[in-house]
Design a protein around this nucleic acid. Structure first.
Lengths: 269, 269
DNA sequence: ATTGATCGGTTCATATATCAAACCGTTGTT
DNA sequence: AACAACGGTTTGATATATGAACCGATCAAT
């Protein structure tokens, strides 16, 4: 593991529930020694990626991140194009909708939108989606670059008793995803969350991300599923268009067959 | 120079005018060799800090920055509290207003707001403000931690023929800044830009940042200066309050004397 | 087709960072 | 006063990063 990546890894230890971390605590979280961790923190602080709370001596994320985030959005305006579609999606389904982007070999959470319709709802608090256990991740494996499958197989971490833990199990999910043009994750990442994900494409025709709806399992009826699927297709088309891409014909075809699976299961030949 | 800092430095090479950079180009900009730079880019890409344009092979800022930026704003909501004051400031002065934050020993640009009133206006396109040559920087030296003065003296880079290049010259600016409670930079950073800056404080009573107005020198009349000063005080009070801090009594006292300097210069004793 | 320039990416002695562990001074608790 | 935990520093054997030179691919001009 390179030095730089070790330093960067420290940044991902900050969470919404633990936004300030002291030196010793950070060593425990990162499982590293104090000397190096301290040097890394110094470097990160000097670059403005973290700053130290002058009274508590603990560290928190720094102002340089805002800068770079703004610059990123100016360079590649992803949020902009996804926001409106996400609002509609959350509203029409009454569930939590979110968009993730594929960068390299990782699915990053980009933006999420909760629907106020129900008091219990899914909350997207992760920053990276495991490729094998989430709908977004499986979507990436199914429609993204070929190397993702092997990569996902190298890290089949178990999250729930439903998480696929063998390459074969994952392959089955991927195959299913390809036939319907959407990925599902029924409690494979979090026990009581059912998710459905549709792919988003960019101008090169490659997968750019995924738009998903995460629903609480207890209210996940076939009717709701049907609504979610329909709205996901609309959202995917909208976002893909706004990102300058087009939906591949193969996906559109798969969607045609998948729209009303409960009435027309027999039409697939 | 540590490995991690070298990698992080690469991120600051991306600008709005050059949002995509290839490997060789980056080596030139960073003045480093290709092998190491390439490895650093790999690390940054894997962490999602940059991503590679699949067609042009060039690199651009990545989605992880959006995440971290969002998380930073969630933990330390700085922009939120500064935004409204900045809009008012830009509107009332007709000039470009911006807020910078002190993190460690660096003044970072946080947010800027241009006034559409004039077709020529100052544009804030830097990410870090030199301590000795900008109003924001001098503000930090004058009202911030003591070590900033020595630090600023170690890097007295010349930007224009008016840039202070000796510790004595800087000390004079700092002294003046302390008596009026605001910092000025008349063409010391950019030849035709006059800036005035007021300090912002946080809950610990320490300097947290600065709010500034950058005006085009040719229309910088005493009347405009007076307006800017008045509005800066209001903005500083507003932002300081929203950041949970209070303006030190010494600053408020200095401001009292400085409000109408053209009529009451003789009242200072 | 050949040259030459430039690109993204790789190799291998050598310089540098890393880590465990012990240490220091401070702070807050018992 | 004793103690424990904190942030931060030092040590020296060991793991890792570094960079000049190198490679093959691409492209423009001859």
């Amino acid at each position: 593991m390179s030095s730089a990546s070790k330093a960067l890894e420290l940044l991902s230890l900050f969470t919404l529930t633990q936004p300030e971390i002291g030196l010793s605590e950070m060593c425990r979280l990162a499982k590293r020694d104090k000397a190096t961790t301290y040097r890394h923190l110094q470097v990160l602080e000097k670059a403005g990626f973290i700053e130290q709370n002058t009274t508590s001596k603990r560290y928190r994320l720094g102002p340089a991140l805002l800068q770079l985030g703004r610059m990123r959005e100016a360079t590649v305006p992803r949020k902009e194009g996804a926001e409106t579609a996400l609002v509609v999606l959350a509203e029409k389904t009454g569930e939590t909708a979110h968009v993730s982007v594929l960068s390299g070999t990782t699915m990053f959470a980009l933006i999420s939108r909760e629907s106020p319709q129900h008091s219990t709802r899914a909350v997207i608090d992760v920053t990276k989606f495991p490729l094998h256990a989430t709908a977004s991740g499986v979507c990436a494996v199914a429609f993204g670059p070929d190397d993702l499958f092997d990569l996902a197989c190298n890290d089949l971490k178990t999250y729930t008793d439903l998480t696929p833990t063998t390459p074969e199990a994952l392959q089955a999910l991927v195959a299913d995803t390809r036939t319907v043009g959407m990925a599902r994750s029924d409690g494979r990442y979090q026990r009581d969350i059912n998710s459905i994900s549709a792919p988003i494409f960019d101008q090169t025709g490659l997968l750019a991300g995924a738009v998903s709806v995460a629903s609480v399992a207890s209210r996940f009826t076939p009717e709701l599923e049907s609504i979610i699927q329909t709205e996901l297709m609309a959202a995917s088309r909208h976002i893909t268009k706004s990102w300058g891409g087009i939906i591949p014909a193969s996906i559109e075809k798969a969607w045609l067959h998948a729209t009303s699976p409960h009435q027309e299961l027999d039409t697939t030949s």
